[in-house]
Structure formats: C-alpha cells, structure tokens
Amino acid sequence: MAYSNKVIDHYSNPRNVGVLDKSDPNVGTGMVGAPECGDVMKLQIKVENDVIVDAKFKTFGCGSAIASSSLATEWIKGRTVDDAMKIRNTEIVQELSLPPVKIHCSVLAEDAIKSAIADYKRKHGQAATTQQQEQQTQQQARS
C-alpha cells in the first residue's frame, strides 16, 4: 500500500511527541484503543483560559495512526476546548488522504481528543456534555 506524502511526513517527523504532567490540574489525558487491536493513542492537552496551549501524544500503531494523532495535536493547539471538540475524523481522513482501511485511525484520533477533553473537564468538575455521551454511544456501537 502506498502512503500519502502527508502520512509519511507525520510518521517521519511526528509533531508533539511527548508527555505532559498528568497530575497537573490543567492537563487532560486521553488514552484510547487497545494493544490487541494494534493501536493505542495517548493524547494530552494543557488548557489555559479555555484554550489548548499545548498538546502531546504517544501512539502505538501503524503509520496512519501515528500520522492521525500527530495531526490531531497540531490542529488542537491554539484552539478553544469547544472548538477542538468540533474536529471530525473525516477532516483527518481528508487531510491525510487515508484509504478506507485506515479510517479507524482517524476515528481513534477524534476519540483521543474527546477523551483528553473529558478528562480535563472531569478535573474541573464539569459533567460530560451531551456530545460526549453521544460519542460514548457511538464507541459502543463500533466495538
């Protein structure tokens, strides 16, 4: 299978690989996927005044999974939390020209963003929004 240049670029020079202090109240951590399925993404955000000022990731997965999470961190940096929630996996698919068999990588990246935001909100006593409940239902449907 041939990879798109953007996938190769993110795979070869991943943006924002690393770790944020998960005990920091301003840091939200999301981990999605499963080793048995061949991909696990860990995505962390640091939020100040409702804006994501930093994002880091670590991914176990194929090149497309690494590229999807790398792109996700790039896109959410500088966005407000609500804005980051609006990122859809289809935009990732389009940007990276992912083939159909790799769509789940983009879904996982979207889930990782939402999971990190949910963790941040939990730390700040905010209940899960309807959108997150919706996403959980979707996730159950997929598994």
């Binding site: 080793p35 991914t59 176990f60």
Partner: peptide, 15 residues
Amino acid sequence: EMSPLYEMAQEGVDI
C-alpha cells in the same frame, strides 16, 4: 520512544 505501551512498561505497568 513514541509508544504509550513502552512508556507504561518502563513505569512498571502491566498492559
């Protein structure tokens, strides 16, 4: 270095 599973193994977490 970019694998969350390796990081967990280094921390002694059994995946």
